[in-house]
Amino acid sequence: MKSMSAIIFKDIVIEMRNKESITSMLMFGVLVLVVFQFAFETINVERGLLAPGTLWVAFSFAAILGLNRSLAMEIDNDCLQGLLLAPISRGELYLGKVASNFIFMMIAEAIVLPLFVVFNNLDFNLKFLEVAAIACLGTLGIASIGTILSTISANTRIKEVMLPVLQIPLTVPVIIASVEATREVLTGDTRGISSWLYVLAGFIIVYLTASYLVFEFAVEE
């Protein structure tokens, strides 16, 4: 616990100083939303059906930017080696990085989400909070698998490009479940939402556990 909070605190101080991670995620997320507005401008369909997809494309790709920044910071000056020298288990290190990645993604999303509401002429009501809760779950799913995949991709020459190649296929269940759950909230027909929340929760539990166990293989020489 102590080492986890140390890692989170350290990442926050660095982010406050260079502002690289959150700014890039935020800009990218907003741009995706804007581009989708143009793409769907002439299509006459209900906003509630299209909007969730645009939101999760924005979130999942922005998350990849954040993960790349987060790992670049640890690779610079071989800091990751310094972390591996510390008397904490590889699993704890993994959880610490998941937590700080998750926090940064949530901060960026907390700004993208109100813009999403405004762009799509939705209301700031209970539904907004429900979507925020789904965003929490989906983002934790993305952070749990993205943290280990970004350490894998960091070993290749084309790290920034490799991460989406590895990550997008594996996050298909998160994206499907989050989009469907968001859509059910926005359309008001929430009969099937519990199964989507179960898929998200299951994904998070399975990947947090699996990554916790095999993280040492991903970081050690």
């Binding site: 298909v172 269940p173 499907i176 099937g192 199964s195 898929v199 994904f203 399975v206």
Partner: peptide, 8 residues
Amino acid sequence: INYLSIYL
């Protein structure tokens, strides 16, 4: 997990 979500 994929199978489950796509099936749903």
